[in-house]
């Protein structure tokens, strides 16, 4: 089967100065797969997520590369043609449901907007039925009443479900989930994750799940891409990544997670300044196994075992 989402050499960066923040990122996602994206803050994982909808925060521009969704090249389309892609092929849910819902519009108005844009043929009554069904599908009881509520009247878990419902309203095939459970409590987190899992299983929804939480990624993803300093350093099936990590950064990440009250501290942690990346390997300053080659050459992402890709000279 052909991969459903293909990202090839995607490079993004600052608008006013040529500083790449996401560098030559390439990956593929099959239909019905959940790809987890793991990395620390500022590593470019959120930017990558947004770029799958060809959206950029202010001050960030597209440099080069291409994204194919269902064989449609996203970055070769005209701005107007994008309206048929966003919401319909690919949708996004964000971290904080309170600030990403409109506080002065009811749930119904916000949901209706999507139907009006993507399903204009529906009558008012059909639209209402669809909305009720959709809210029921995301696990909201009394959908008729909830449709009339405003975001502030809903709890955190409910708001996140509404966000998911809005994202699903256009019947997308890919969902980009950018840390959708960081702002909510662990007991609610499980519910939202279960919902996404169910949608993935029942609808065959493809999900790109961005998070810095190892537990969440382990729970939901089939494969995981680890980002460091704007590039993928390791890409592997989830169990392989958690139990036999190869890249020193992934190893540091996994070892520093408290297990049974114990963990290993990575002493060389510092924030990578994306504008002052070292020549050669970006991880060389923090690496436990520094090598001479890393000082002047940049390693490639290579498949070292079946399905297991690593960007490190130790495995070349």
């Amino acid at each position: 089967m052909n991969p459903f989402l293909v990202v090839k050499d995607l490079t993004l960066g600052l608008t006013y100065k040529r500083v790449p923040l996401v560098e030559k990122v390439s990956f593929e996602v099959k239909k019905g797969e959940v790809l987890g994206v793991l990395g620390e803050s500022g590593c470019g994982k959120t930017l990558t997520g947004f770029s799958l909808l060809r959206l950029f925060p202010p001050g960030i521009s597209y440099y080069s590369g291409e994204v194919w969704i269902d064989e449609i090249p996203l970055y070769s389309l005209k701005e107007k043609e994008l309206y048929q892609i966003r919401g319909k092929k690919v949708a996004i849910i964000l971290q904080d449901p309170l600030s990403s819902l409109n506080p002065v519009l009811s749930v119904k108005e916000q949901l209706e907007e999507v139907f009006k844009a993507h399903r204009p043929e529906l009558t008012k009554k059909e639209r209402f039925e669809k909305m009720v069904d959709l809210l029921r599908e995301v696990g909201i009881s009394d959908p008729e009443i909830r449709l009339k509520s405003y975001p502030h009247q809903l709890s955190g878990g409910l708001r996140q479900r509404i966000m998911i419902a809005i994202a699903l309203a256009g019947d997308p095939e890919i969902l980009v989930a950018d840390e959708p459970t960081t702002a909510i409590d662990p007991t609610l987190q499980i519910q939202v994750l279960n919902l996404l899992k169910r949608l993935n299983r029942e609808r065959g929804l493809t999900i790109v799940f961005i998070s810095h939480d190892l537990g969440v990624i382990r729970w939901i993803a089939h494969r995981v891409a680890v980002f460091y300093a704007g590039e993928i350093v390791e890409l592997a099936p989830v169990e392989r990544l958690f139990f036999t990590p190869l890249h020193p950064y992934t190893q540091a990440l996994i070892n520093s997670y408290p297990k049974e009250g114990k963990f290993k501290v990575d002493l060389k942690v510092g924030v990578v300044e994306l504008s002052k990346k070292p020549e050669g390997c970006y991880y060389q300053l923090r690496c436990d196994h520094p090598c001479d080659k890393a000082k002047s050459y940049h390693p490639q992402l290579l498949e070292v075992a079946s399905q297991h890709w690593v960007r490190c000279f130790r495995y070349e």
Partner: peptide
Amino acid sequence: SYLDPFAPSQIFSEIEI
């Protein structure tokens, strides 16, 4: 509801709350 990243995979079925 705590998601242990290093739990053996069989526990990772479904938690209903």
